[in-house]
Amino acid sequence: MSGAAKDIEEIVREHAFFEGLLEPFGKLISGCAKNVHFQPGEYLFHEGDAADQFYLIRQGCVALEIKAPGRGAITFQTVREDEVVGVEWLIPPYRWSYDARAAEFTRAIAMDGACLRRKCEADHDLGYEVMKRFMPVLIQRLQAAQMQILDVYGEQA
């Protein structure tokens, strides 16, 4: 095992999203991880692209956007350090439904979705561990979307 691989395992296990992860799981997950960084304005991915990664944000800020005719790009969520970008890699058809843009210089761990899916399929204990960590992200996104749809601060609220 190289020094670099050990480093990334440490980084993964120290990230808030994987807090308290058991060591064997950390090893398995880190095998799918790589260090990435994005310059301000650089896109992590675009709507319609294959969703074959997710990102543990270590530093910076990522804006999730949807393009709308006449309105340009609308940011509906910002994601910062200790948070995660992307759940689409988990569910077929593994396709992004929005754009993700680095709003600042951003460092992240990119996880290979296909790699992790294979490992989760092979080891359901790992799969359950991963699911337990992604489900709150999904639910929080859903609750935030409900608030945004209700437009609670709008004229009618």
Binding site: A63, L64, G72, I74, Q77, T78, R101, Q148, D151
Partner: peptide, 13 residues
Amino acid sequence: DHAAVSDWRGHVG
């Protein structure tokens, strides 16, 4: 809750 990319650099959510 939402922002046009051109006029906001802060939190969205």
